[in-house]
Design a protein around this nucleic acid. Structure first.
Lengths: 144, 144
DNA sequence: TCACAGTAGTTAGCTTAGCTAATGATCCGC
DNA sequence: GCGGATCATTAGCTAAGCTAACTACTGTGA
């Protein structure tokens, strides 16, 4: 095993552990409202993309299609997402946030970030810039 | 709002997004074996700490006690964790990995990290050291 | 043109994870 | 030694995730 590979393995362990715990922490800070983490995440992806088919959304969220069916169903029940027929392919469906969806998203997003933002504000500028660079690298890795 | 606070909010959003996606990605790479992410995480905490009470383990894992009862129950069913009475307080229980638990942990841990380690090995040394520093900061934040 | 293979979405049925509320057992302070 | 805290568990719920199987539709090729 190369030294590089070994370093990568140690780092993988550390990083995974940190991410697991932080993820739980952020999840826990869920506001009293009723949108769950997965629902908010899906709504966010829709918001950012404008509109997606269920399959595309499932791919973006790295989830199997049936899972996304459920999540979207919940969002639809709440009137946050609307489905319209695909213009040419009648098998497909177009999902997009409703006006209400956009509003609710903004509110939750703010509440959602509050705890984490507070923690980050307490860090040094140097630490924050390290995290900013790390976030980009992680995005890239997750996309691979 | 201070500039610092604003920076923190943007960073929070980015970071949270990256972490969510990476977490799903790693979860997805779960080996065919039968230990789930939460189970492995709990086993890991026990391994690192040596022994903990259910309450302590729940705190470490940032989970409510009943949730930990279930997870520990599964690990116990598989003979990976054993419970012994607390020496002085009969309400409490001491949880520790069994010999088999330690073995299984090591195997899974290796398989678990494989995908992530591979990704990290492909990064530049500079990127890796950024992630290493970030991991420490995140650990600290998650602990807050 | 039409049979058939492939694709999109959903449904069904399962396990795991997480929560709160309530219980039972124990501890400890007064 | 009584009464309030604390530890663990049970019960009962919802959400998230999976695979397998189904329906509806598309598109291709004989």
């Amino acid at each position: 095993m190369t030294a590089e590979r070994e370093t990568a393995e140690v780092l993988a362990r550390t990083l995974r552990d940190a991410i697991t715990r932080l993820n739980r922490r952020v999840r826990q800070a869920r506001p009293v409202g009723d949108l769950t983490f997965s629902q908010l995440s899906a709504l966010t992806s829709l918001q950012l993309a404008g509109a997606l088919t269920p399959r595309e959304l499932a791919d973006v969220e790295r989830v199997q299609p049936p899972t996304m069916t459920k999540i979207v169903g919940k969002l639809e029940d709440r009137g946050l997402v609307a489905r319209t027929p695909h213009p040419t392919d009648r098998r497909q469906v177009i999902l997009a946030p409703t006006e209400q969806g956009r509003t609710v998203y903004a509110q939750f997003e703010r509440a959602r970030n509050e705890w984490l933002a507070q923690q980050l504000a307490n860090l040094s500028p140097d630490e924050r810039s390290t995290l900013a660079r790390a976030a980009e690298i992680l995005q890239q890795v997750a996309r691979a």
